[in-house]
Design a binder for these strands. Sequence first.
DNA 1: CAGTATCCGTCTGGATACTG
DNA 2: CAGTATCCAGACGGATACTG
Lengths: 118, 118
Amino acid sequence: MPDPSCPVCRTAEIVCGKWTLLIVRDLAEGRSRFCELERSLGGISPRTLSLRLRALEEEGIVHRTTFPEVPPRVEYALTEKGRALVPIIDSMRVYGSEWLGAEGSCAEAPETAEAVAA
Amino acid sequence: MPDPSCPVCRTAEIVCGKWTLLIVRDLAEGRSRFCELERSLGGISPRTLSLRLRALEEEGIVHRTTFPEVPPRVEYALTEKGRALVPIIDSMRVYGSEWLGAEGSCAEAPETAEAVAA
DNA sequence: CAGTATCCGTCTGGATACTG
DNA sequence: CAGTATCCAGACGGATACTG
């Protein structure tokens, strides 16, 4: 941790896992089940997903609800603190669309194209 | 690379190096010399700084100018593409200040405190 | 000053198999 | 379904020493 007194660094540490942002994004889009995330993230190993989810939970970004039913069911959801990450994701999407070869295929970034085209 | 068609992922890959954002931030604040960055980043090894700078240069985020003088001088600066990253850093700073124990010691996030206090 | 070279440890994350 | 356990490879990054 380079500089723990810097808010940018602290956020970077949360945000910098390989899959972290994607999980948060999927959660923000309404996915909530383990296997749903597993599928939508295409290729993540259950181990990694489990680790990320657990870390996110400990950081208070994700909330986990267990339903003690016969087919075990668990639902994940963003907390307030987790939803607060969405603006970061949005600015990353804007950047990615404007500077890294657009085609917003995972979600929209409406005004973006014309801004760069203008 | 989880999903190369996703702008968020592409940005994440650039942004997720341990020191990357900090280097960009320092550059945005006007630092430009190798040893200046080395000092301000407190504890980064020259090897790592060199690697990061080189990667950033290859991605077109940083521009490197060499002055063929007797005491070798090199200056680094953000390109347009590099400056475009600043909004991401800003939203990360806002998040860090609001949700991860504020004290904006590396730069200001003015309206932030009152927003959370209100 | 501005790096590069070498060595080495850590951490992340993938593959696979198995459990409650 | 929702994970956990084990094993393993590669990337990341620090320390140190040396060069143009």
